[in-house]
Computed example of a mutant assay.
Amino acid sequence: MHGEYKVPGGKLVVVDVEVEDGLLRDVRVSGDFFLEPDEALADIDRALEGAPAEADAAALAARIEAALPPGAVLFGFSAQSVAVAVRRALARATDWRDYDWQLVHDAPQSPVLHMALDEVMTEEVALGRRPPTLRVWEWDRPAVIIGSFQSLRNEVDPEGVERHGVTVVRRISGGGAMFAEPKSTITYSLAVPQSLVSGLSFQDSYAYLDDWVLGALADMGIKAWYQPLNDIATEVGKVAGAAQKRLAAGQGAVLHHVTMSYDIDADKMVEVLRIGREKLSDKGTKSAKKRVDPLRRQTGLPREEVIARMIDSFRGRYGLTEGTVTDAEMARAQELVRTKFGTREWTARVP
């Protein structure tokens, strides 16, 4: 069995392993990482030899750490990342390059249709009827999108929403509320097979699925990193938030979507969202404005150019062909708008 794990912001770790009588055998760790002393690589292999195949990543990492010689230096990887690569090998996880990725970047859509398309397209990936897909959203109106488990009354200011003509919708993933206006944010979804994140913890899958965008930002001169659980941050503030939903249809699939701040109107945002003191305190800020750091200021590039460079970065890493929403997918999405996402029962399911 063969497993690979690209450490977010770090190096590639590769593990080849066999299982005999429930134990790991013939373990071989390799990669483009740095390790001192050289002999420590053999120590890592020996530490994993004979480990129970059902051991979780934490137990495997502990075996590795206990076997490393004093003063060993692991650069670009860690005992934990080796353990993750082992788990991915045992789970027969797939790699980004195992797929023919499709890009969907259509005309502006209503907020409620975006919610439905996310669910439909991810289900189609799970059922094997759609290839893994990167979908870049365009908004046709201002919107507040609340997380699946958030209270509508606690998160949204109805007077501000009405005053600014904002549509409120609820998505299927958890996480916090977001405010979007046409041309003010960059939002994208990844609909991927469950096997792509096999062997990864829920938390690790967030960083893993957005490692490509950190590279794209770096190419635009922005040093960004993942801030657990679901934020992308830079030295001057947060630039994006992510959310996920696992769907069990077919072989299973993961919906991972991200909203990035390009040029948010922070004054309007605090008028339509109830951003509580607790949340601001948790972020270490005194005002909501400081939590929004527009990509326009950091890149100096038009929004369309930022999106184009992100797409080019993804294509350069994994390949990407142009696609579109199929007629059948659109019909199903419109049905979900009518029966689910466009209903008061769904939007206010947590009052």
Rank of each mutant, 00 (worst) to 15 (best):
P142W: 05
M260C: 08
Y99Q: 00
L295W: 04
K289I: 09
V258A: 02
I311T: 09
A328P: 03
A83K: 03
R141E: 15
P132W: 03
G165T: 06
K223P: 05
E304W: 03
F75V: 15
P52W: 07
D211F: 02
G250M: 12
I44N: 04
P351R: 06
E54H: 13
P69T: 07
R87V: 07
L247Y: 13
L24D: 05
L295F: 02
L134I: 06
W139E: 12
E305P: 05
T299H: 08
A333Y: 01
Q227H: 15
P142S: 04
I64T: 13
A72R: 06
R246P: 01
T339S: 14
I172N: 14
I275W: 08
G50T: 09
L320N: 08
K245H: 15
A348H: 10
A191H: 11
A79Q: 07
D293T: 14
L74N: 05
S195H: 00
G276A: 08
V213Q: 14
E335T: 10
S287V: 11
F75E: 14
D95Y: 06
K6G: 09
L68K: 07
D95P: 05
T187A: 13
K279P: 00
A47V: 08
A308D: 12
D26S: 14
E138P: 13
E124S: 11
E54S: 13
G250V: 13
L127K: 13
E20L: 13
D16M: 01
V125C: 07
D21M: 05
R97Y: 08
A253L: 08
E159M: 07
A248H: 11
V125M: 06
D100P: 11
R349L: 13
Y208D: 02
S78D: 11
R246H: 09
I186Y: 03
L152G: 07
I311C: 05
Q203F: 11
D56R: 05
E18M: 08
L23F: 11
G3Y: 01
R297S: 11
D210A: 11
A348K: 02
A243R: 02
T234M: 11
A53M: 00
